[in-house]
Amino acid sequence: MVIRPVAPAGNGAVPLSTGDLEEICAIIYKRSGMVFGETKRYYIERRITDLIDQRQAHSVRNYISILRSDLNETELLINSFTVNETYFYREQHQLACLSNSILPDIIRKKGPGDRIRIWSMPCSSGEEPYSIAIWLLENWPLVDAYNIEIVGSDIDTAILRHAVDGYFGQRSLSRLSPEIRDRYFEREVDQQRQLIRDLRESVTFAKGNIVDRQSLGALGRFDVIFCRNLLIYFDEAAREMAARNIHELLNPGGYVCLGHTESMSRISETFEAVRFPDAIVYREAVRLSDG
């Protein structure tokens, strides 16, 4: 039997039938919790066309068959659909809240030298967790008095490799002052600067899927969790699952920082909003006893 490639649509992308679109979106949702559908058809068709070409699958059905049988291919599919738009010192008010309010509260129950664990999920290409490390070095006088562990996680394995390498262009660095850029980054080469080795080694990176508890099992628990601008891509069921997993990974008295358009209070009753001078964040809700 000869398989004839599907002719691209006018926009250069292979057109998807309604059934193919739904099947691909179901695979993405099952593996990542991200919701895609008819309103994102153009976006989906462009990426599926690229993946069909890379795999030399020749047709949409062939490519879906590969997805069904090859977990590595599903991982590449998820990588192609993740959004990695970020930059250093994004939502800086939350970083100020971290040093001015969150950490001072956390260390009330800790002693010098104790461990403080901070998780950035999704960490994208590294700007998120590296920003935390730089901010604390620059703005928290007690940074050397505690054992601070910063972990960055993302479902996108390709972007994690980029994060480990630590190369960043001018767009990523645009919010940093020239002094900070010169202090923490090597000289520019080919319009990119590499983060200095000490800072690259100060952050641990690990693959993680916020809606898959099993994938998070080895990460341990954290005092502060940054999960910004991720839940907006989920439906209600996936958001509730993510909230449960975040709750399980949070130490008692710990804090969660979401994106400015997100609200944990609308998702889960296990969290309550805390209004600090710099930002609104979330922590485990205090439940009053019946007696």
Rank of each mutant, 00 (worst) to 15 (best):
C227E: 01
E179L: 11
N209I: 09
R117F: 04
K30D: 15
S215M: 08
I196Y: 01
P122I: 04
V14R: 00
W140P: 00
R197S: 06
R55Q: 15
N209S: 12
N79K: 05
T82C: 06
R46Q: 11
D235W: 06
P252Q: 10
I155N: 01
D53C: 02
E201L: 07
L173W: 06
L71Y: 06
G10C: 07
E262Y: 07
E262V: 05
R228M: 10
A279M: 07
T261V: 12
Y42M: 11
C97V: 04
A57K: 03
Q170G: 15
R187S: 15
L137A: 07
E91L: 01
I159A: 05
G254S: 11
S17T: 15
I24L: 05
R161E: 15
G19L: 13
S99C: 13
F81A: 03
S202P: 03
I159D: 03
C227Q: 03
G291E: 14
R171P: 06
Q92H: 14
D70Y: 09
I107C: 06
H260D: 12
W135V: 03
G208W: 00
T204S: 12
A163K: 04
E91N: 07
K40D: 11
S265T: 15
L95M: 04
R55D: 12
F276C: 09
C227A: 13
K207N: 08
I132M: 13
F205C: 03
T157N: 09
Y146W: 02
I132S: 02
A285I: 06
R161T: 13
E236V: 05
W140Q: 03
N84S: 07
F185E: 01
S59K: 02
A133P: 02
Q56I: 04
I196S: 01
Y43W: 07
Q192M: 11
L176F: 04
P277Q: 04
H93E: 15
K207H: 14
M121I: 12
L67C: 12
T18R: 13
L71E: 14
Y167V: 05
S125K: 06
D198N: 02
E128L: 01
L76Q: 13
S80R: 08
I150P: 00
Y282E: 13
W140T: 00
M264E: 09
L173A: 08
R61K: 08
Y43I: 09
R115F: 02
F222S: 02
S174C: 13
R266Q: 11
D165V: 06
V6W: 01
D154M: 01
E179M: 12
